[in-house]
């Protein structure tokens, strides 16, 4: 069809058709492996959820291996406001975090146990939460 690509005649001026308006936006979440969380991928505009899913499969599902997709009408997403909605508290929160205890606990153990025993014991700690 290269002829059509070459031959569309330049036409200037305004469009005769009225403005069309947009389809509805849907938010897309993709899951890369079974069991992984679904992650925000982007948006598609579509007439309804089925069409949104069809579009999302080809737009956001083909960049890398992907096993599952959710689409949600954008208007269904309600969000907090960065400036006015405080989520994480200002006061000291270390009392509810493991890392609030790691140093004092270590110091206290050291007074009671040999270093190699402590090291062996600490092997089973969930270190990534410290």
């Amino acid at each position: 069809m290269s002829n059509v690509r070459e031959q569309s005649h330049p036409s200037n001026g305004d469009l005769t058709s009225p403005a069309e308006g947009d389809l509805k936006p849907y938010v897309v979440f993709t899951q890369l492996n079974r069991g992984d969380p679904h992650m925000y991928a982007g948006c598609v505009d579509a007439a309804d959820q089925q069409m949104a899913l069809q579009f999302a499969r080809e737009h956001y599902g083909q960049d890398q291996k992907c096993v599952n997709i959710w689409v949600v009408p954008k208007e269904a997403v309600t969000a907090t406001n960065y400036d006015t909605d405080l989520i994480w508290r200002h006061t000291d929160q270390t009392y509810r975090l493991a890392r609030g205890y790691s140093k004092p606990v270590k110091d206290k153990w050291r007074k009671l146990r040999r270093a190699e025993d402590l090291k062996e014991y600490e092997k089973d700690d969930l270190k990534e939460t410290f």
Partner: peptide, 12 residues
């Protein structure tokens, strides 16, 4: 006719 379908149809 629609950007999203452009992408989909091209995949097919």
């Amino acid at each position: 006719p629609i950007l999203e379908e452009d992408i989909a149809f091209s995949s097919l």
